[in-house]
C-alpha cells in the first residue's frame, strides 16, 4: 500500500469522473443489455404468472359467488349446476383439513424416525443407497399411489377398521360399518405414505448438518446414542423438521388424484372417520369437473381459489422458517 501510492491512490480519484463512464460503457454493450433484459424478463414473468393465477381465479370465483344461493362457507351441499346454484365448501374444507392432519400425525413421526435412521442409525454402507431410494420414491406419480390405494390398500384395511370399531367404536370417531374402507382415514394413511419421502429427505439434510462437535461432546460425556440425539441433533434440527412438515402439509392439502381414486365422496360431514364419505377441495374439482356447466366450473374454480390461498399460506410459512434458519446458521 505504502510502496505504490500511485496505483493504490488511483481508485478514489477515478471514482469521481472516469469510473461511471467505464461502467456505463460496459452496461451499454448491446449484448449485455439484451441478455440482462431477457433474464430479468423471465424473472418478472414468473411473478406475473403468480399474480395472474390469483387474478383469474378470483374473477371466476366472484362470478360464481354472485350466482350462489347458499352461503359459500357454511352450506353442506354442492349443487352448482342446478338453478339456482347452491354450493358451499364446509364439507370440502373439513375433509381437506382432517385428512391432511391425519396424514401429518402419521407421517411426521415416522419420517423423523426414518431420517434419523438414515443419518445416525443405519450402517454407512446402507445409508447412501437408502437416501437415494427415498429420493426416487418421491418421484412415483400420485395416480399410481391412487391406483395402489384403491385396489390394494382399501381391501386390506377393512380388518383393521372393524378391530378399531370393536375397541374404539364408542368414541364415535372410530365407528365403522362394514363396506369398502374408502374413507377420510384411508386417505390420511395414503397421503402419509405419499408425503413421507419429502419430509424424510428434508429432515435428513438438516440432521446431517448438526455440528459434529456437539455430538462428540455429548458422546464424550458418556451419553447414549439416544441422549446424543435428544440433546444435540433434535434441538438443532427442530426448525428444519417443522418446515419439512409444512412442505409435506402443502402437498397433502393439494393432492388430487390419489384422493379422487380412493375416496367415495359425499356431501356430509361424518363424525366417523372410518366410514366412507366426505371430500376434499382437489378431489371435488377432479371428480365433478366433467359434469359441470358454466356456473358449475366457476364454482369449482372458487373452491380452487380457497385451496390456492391455503397452500400459499402453508408454503409461505414453511419458506419463511427455512429462510430465517439460513440467516441464523450462516
Amino acid at each position: 500500500m505504502d510502496i505504490t501510492p500511485a496505483t493504490s491512490a488511483a481508485p478514489p480519484p477515478l471514482s469521481g469522473a472516469p469510473a461511471p463512464a467505464e461502467q456505463a460503457k460496459s452496461a451499454t454493450r448491446p449484448g449485455d443489455r439484451i441478455f440482462l433484459g431477457f433474464s430479468r424478463g423471465s424473472g418478472i414473468l414468473l411473478l406475473v404468472i403468480m399474480a395472474a393465477i390469483a387474478a383469474f381465479l378470483a374473477v371466476r370465483a366472484v362470478n360464481a359467488l354472485s350466482h350462489n344461493e347458499g352461503n359459500f362457507f357454511t352450506t353442506f351441499e354442492w349443487s352448482a349446476n342446478s338453478t339456482p346454484p347452491v354450493f358451499g365448501i364446509a364439507v370440502l374444507a373439513f375433509g381437506t383439513v382432517v385428512s391432511s392432519l391425519i396424514a401429518m400425525l402419521i407421517a411426521v413421526p415416522v419420517a423423523i424416525g426414518v431420517a434419523l435412521f438414515v443419518s445416525h442409525y443405519a450402517p454407512r454402507k446402507l445409508a447412501t443407497p437408502l437416501s437415494y431410494v427415498i429420493d426416487l420414491l418421491a418421484a412415483v406419480p400420485s395416480i399410481v399411489y391412487g391406483l395402489w390405494g384403491a385396489l390394494f390398500l382399501v381391501p386390506h384395511l377393512g380388518g383393521l377398521y372393524s378391530w378399531l370399531n370393536d375397541y374404539l367404536g364408542w368414541t364415535g370417531i372410530f365407528a365403522y360399518h362394514d363396506g369398502a374402507a374408502r374413507s377420510l382415514f384411508t386417505i390420511g394413511i395414503l397421503l402419509a405414505i405419499m408425503i413421507l419421502p419429502i419430509v424424510t429427505s428434508v429432515s435428513r439434510e438438516v440432521f446431517l448438518q448438526t455440528p459434529r462437535m456437539n455430538e462428540e461432546a455429548a458422546l464424550a460425556l458418556g451419553a447414549t446414542r439416544w441422549e446424543v440425539i435428544r440433546m444435540s441433533v433434535l434441538p438443532f434440527g427442530r426448525s428444519g423438521v417443522i418446515s419439512a412438515s409444512m412442505l409435506g402439509l402443502g402437498r397433502a392439502l393439494g393432492e388430487t388424484m390419489a384422493v379422487a381414486t380412493v375416496l367415495s365422496p359425499s356431501f356430509l360431514i361424518n363424525t366417523s372417520l372410518l366410514d366412507p364419505g366426505g371430500g376434499t377441495f382437489a378431489q371435488n374439482i377432479a371428480s365433478s369437473f366433467k359434469e359441470s356447466g358454466e356456473i358449475g366450473k366457476d364454482a369449482l374454480i372458487a373452491s380452487g381459489l380457497v385451496l390456492f390461498v391455503l397452500t400459499l399460506l402453508v408454503n409461505g410459512a414453511a419458506r419463511m422458517i427455512i429462510a430465517r434458519r439460513k440467516e441464523y446458521t450462516a
Binding site: 411473478l47 403468480m50 388430487t256 380452487g304 397452500t311 408454503n315 414453511a318
Partner: peptide, 28 residues
C-alpha cells in the same frame, strides 16, 4: 428487491397444487 421477490415466489410456486395450475389455464 426484485430478486428477493422472485426467489420467494419461486419457492412458493413449487408448492402450487397441480389442480390449481390446471384451473388457472382453464379460466384463462
Amino acid at each position: 428487491r426484485l430478486a428477493k421477490a422472485v426467489t420467494f415466489f419461486v419457492d412458493v410456486m413449487t408448492g402450487i397444487p397441480s389442480i390449481v395450475a390446471g384451473l388457472f389455464i382453464l379460466s384463462f
